[in-house]
């Protein structure tokens, strides 16, 4: 059977402080990278890991109150929430990314959790990036997702989430998690689509209809994104063919 052919490749970013100096037992298909704190993991790096062929990525951090850097673990949880949205949009699915906050004292053997994730990925199958047919699209999607994740808008929202949902905003109000999540959804979605449009029009000028087809979106929605991208200097009308304007990406710095 195909499934037995190759085990999934899993990359695990693990906080240095979870297993201080202890020997760690993980399955052989787990590549573990120790990091000073998972809160310091740039979302772009995680997307990059997927772009390099990982079938699954696992983040392992300290228990909520145990973070060596106060709340890096919680920050990582929020980043994962956003990344899952992006992975869904990119067509990889949110299941390939998992975060666990772990303590060897409380939770026992890590091996159990590693195997569980490994099996989940096994069920999802190997990354669509390995499918020759899907690969170009997924590559484009991941590139867009990376740009979206490094966009100022998303970084601000991610950075402020705790402050705004758990403490108070500039007006002394607290935004409910649900509202914030909905806002984040909208913005992640918009940034992803815009960077996808940007990626697609880098080499070849495209029309609204062509883009709509490629993105599986209504042309009117694509046009709206283009008006916003023009406003932000991401794209320009390149030329008009017949009655169809074609757009080309502008260099974004």
């Amino acid at each position: 059977m195909e499934m037995e052919a190759e085990p999934p490749k899993i990359v695990c970013f693990m906080c240095n402080w979870v297993f201080c100096g202890e020997e760690l037992q993980v399955p052989y298909n787990f590549n573990v990278f120790r990091v000073p704190c998972i809160g310091r993991m740039d979302p772009v790096l995680i997307l990059e890991t997927f772009a390099n062929g990982a079938d699954g990525v696992m983040l392992v951090g300290c228990k909520p109150a145990d973070c060596h850097f106060v709340d890096g673990n919680l920050h990582a949880e929020r980043a994962v929430k956003m990344l899952k949205k992006l992975l869904n949009l990119a067509g990889l699915g949110h299941g390939r990314l998992k975060i666990i906050l772990f303590s060897p004292l409380e939770d026992g053997n890590f091996d159990k959790y590693a195997k569980e994730f490994s099996e989940e990925i096994w069920v999802l199958g190997s990354s669509p990036l390995k499918n020759a047919e899907l690969a170009p699209k997924i590559t484009a999607n991941l590139a867009a997702a990376k740009n979206a994740a490094s966009a100022f808008r998303l970084r601000v929202l991610l950075g402020r989430e705790e402050e705004l949902t758990e403490l108070e905003n500039a007006y002394g109000e607290r935004i409910s998690e649900k509202d914030y999540d909905a806002l984040l959804d909208d913005i992640v979605n918009a940034e992803f689509v815009r960077y996808k449009i940007h990626y697609l029009t880098r080499d070849k000028p495209l029309s609204v209809r062509q883009l709509a087809e490629m993105l599986g979106l209504k042309p009117s929605i694509v046009l709206r994104h283009i008006t916003n991208m023009r406003r932000k200097g991401m794209i320009s009308m390149y030329r008009v063919e017949g009655n169809t304007p074609l757009y080309k990406a502008l260099e974004v710095h």
């Binding site: 609204v208 009117s220 694509v222 008006t227 009655n243 304007p245």
Partner: peptide, 13 residues
């Protein structure tokens, strides 16, 4: 639309 008349439904002129 930068002054080019476009249809809101599909961006065609």
């Amino acid at each position: 639309y930068g002054g080019v008349v476009l249809r809101p439904s599909d961006g065609e002129i």
